[in-house]
């Protein structure tokens, strides 16, 4: 199940019996799942199934109506070691912010929680540069972030998380607005990071990509429909049940 089963189990994320709704009607009902260190987990589900909400809950951005969420062994709402979690939001591939800022400046932000109110040191800059090399866009360091393609921008945000020495990488729909070729390269990058010990948790609409690349699939539609390895998921009827049977399934791929 876990990527490298030799490791001892350490729960980075523990969601226990969580229900949550923005209004009276619940978005999520009685969700329980844990993510161990070193896992590569993909969360899938139809639009409006509460995937992004689940991410926000486990990042401590919302308080669950019932149940509890722990992040690295602490309650998520009160979680203090924030730099250990890298978050890449859903809309970063969109070019909405016209703010003049370079890729290097964005990545350096990953160091800000470490620096606190102190100055950014040359060591911080060095780490930011290394992170850019890891994701393969160090040659774009001095470009404006708005000049990058969707895929490149996605890498920049991952570099920011790496620069912050994140142990858990959380991505919300990372491939929206990224062209097909870049999507493959992007998942290869996530795979490499996972091989190096990074715990990856992503919400993704591209079910085929999740089955192909991750080591564990969580299928969600307000409640939990499936949690297990991709091959079993592909063979199960969880997708049909979660999406409803009238959903076209041309997204799906055959797993080798």
């Amino acid at each position: 199940m876990a990527h490298d089963s030799k490791q001892y189990r350490e729960e980075l994320v523990a969601v226990r019996g969580v229900s949550f709704g923005y209004t009276a009607s619940p978005v999520l009902t009685d969700i329980s799942l844990t993510v161990d260190r070193g896992e590569y987990v993909g969360i899938v589900g139809p639009n409006g199934s509460g995937k992004s909400t689940l991410l926000r809950l486990l990042l401590g951005l919302h308080e669950p109506d019932s149940g509890s969420v722990d992040l690295l062994g602490q309650p998520a709402r009160a979680f203090a070691e924030r730099e250990k979690v890298g978050y890449v939001a859903q809309d970063v591939t969109e070019n909405t912010k016209r703010m003049p800022i370079t890729v290097a400046e964005v990545v350096l932000m990953g160091r800000f929680p470490h620096a606190g109110f102190g100055r950014v040191t040359s060591d911080d800059r060095e780490r930011a540069h290394e992170a850019l090399e890891t994701v393969g866009i160090h040659h774009l360091a001095d470009r404006k972030i708005t000049q990058l393609s969707g895929g490149q921008r996605q890498r920049a945000y991952i570099a920011r998380a790496l620069a912050g020495e994140a142990e858990l990488l959380v991505l919300d729909e990372p491939t929206v607005g990224v062209d097909a070729e870049s999507v493959d390269a992007f998942f290869d990058l996530l795979g490499d990071l996972n091989d190096d010990g990074m715990t990856v948790l992503l919400v993704e609409h591209d079910i085929g990509a999740v089955i192909e690349h991750t080591s564990r699939v969580v299928c969600l539609n307000r409640e939990l429909y499936f949690d297990g390895d991709p091959v079993t998921f592909a063979e199960s009827d969880a997708l049909d049940r979660a999406f409803g049977t009238n959903v076209r399934r041309d997204d799906e791929v055959v797993v080798s």
């Binding site: 990042l59 401590g60 951005l61 979680f79 203090a80 924030r82 730099e83 979690v85 978050y87 890449v88 939001a89 970063v92 912010k97 703010m99 800022i101 964005v106 932000m109 800000f112 929680p113 620096a115 109110f117 950014v120 920011r160 912050g164 959380v170």
Partner: peptide, 18 residues
């Protein structure tokens, strides 16, 4: 640094504990 982070990416700033 905090102002820049909040200005550029409010959600990530919240995740980062600001």
């Amino acid at each position: 640094k905090q102002l820049l982070y909040v200005t550029f990416d409010e959600t990530a700033a919240r995740v980062a504990g600001l």
